[in-house]
């Protein structure tokens, strides 16, 4: 059996010389593996968009253009767990859907855009965006690679929201928040504190950081009811 994609991604991340932070490295590797010229991680936090990381100036420009115009795939993909693929940004459909952003992307020689959701179930944090030069569909391999990149980005995005410095290796990144224990614990915290699933995940992450233990350990303790999160506990930034 071939090496699983998450492992390939993880190795490429370790070897990547491009980018300083892990989030930037994820963007570079994502751009390469999804056939793009640029990539970014954009988050929707407290009703505002922000670029968490980008592969370079082109991705930053395209992200910020979307945020300023309130138009573009970043918005269209928001809240959905299904990737949004704009196969031809200069095509009729895209022109109608993205009247303000479309021409800007085209002027920067972008032909197609893929936005992969960063989230868990109904709890969606943002998207991993890949900007490609040529128009046309993604190959199945590129599509799968985008989902893997988004799963790596999820870990970074929750860490960012919890306001914690990460101390995990790239091999641990994917799946760190994706286990059943995390979902169940997040549901329990959301019910107890009357907050969203997303806020619960962020609180669990912040608590794990404060206690210097893996998030999974906190999740299991909540699930077994040996730990109750304090509503007053610092819930992280920003």
């Amino acid at each position: 059996m071939a090496e699983p994609r998450w492992l390939e991604f993880s190795r490429q991340l370790e070897d990547s010389r491009l980018g300083t932070t892990t989030a930037e490295k994820i963007c570079h590797v994502a751009a390469t593996r999804v056939g793009g010229v640029a990539a970014s991680i954009s988050l929707f936090v407290d009703h505002a968009y922000l670029a968490l990381a980008e592969s370079g100036p082109l991705a930053l420009l395209l992200d910020e253009a979307q945020f300023q115009l309130g138009d573009g795939p970043v918005f269209a993909a928001q809240g959905s767990a299904v990737p949004l693929i704009v196969e031809d940004i200069s095509g009729t459909d895209a022109r109608a859907e993205f009247p303000a952003f479309g021409p800007i992307a085209e002027s920067k020689n972008v032909g197609s855009i893929a936005a992969f959701p960063i989230g868990l179930g109904t709890a969606q944090l943002g998207t991993l965006n890949v900007y490609r030069e040529s128009a046309g569909p993604l190959s199945a391999e590129e599509y799968a690679n985008g989902l893997v990149a988004a799963s790596f980005a999820l870990s970074e995005a929750i860490d960012y929201q919890a306001g914690v410095a990460k101390a995990v290796s790239s091999g641990e990144l994917p799946g760190r928040f994706e286990s059943s224990h995390l979902q169940i614990a997040a549901g329990m915290v959301a019910e107890a504190l009357e907050c969203s699933i997303l806020e619960s995940l962020v609180r669990i992450r912040a608590r794990a950081f404060a206690d210097s233990v893996p998030v999974l350990e906190i999740a299991k303790a909540i699930e077994e009811r040996t730990l109750v999160l304090d509503p007053e506990q610092q819930k992280g930034k920003p």
Binding site: P83, G119, A186, M188, V189, A190
Partner: peptide, 19 residues
């Protein structure tokens, strides 16, 4: 992918109802 996300939602709901 969608099936996995649906399962995540079911588990989150399980946690809420358990609580």
């Amino acid at each position: 992918h969608v099936a996995v996300e649906s399962r995540n939602t079911i588990e989150q709901a399980q946690g809420m109802i358990a609580q």
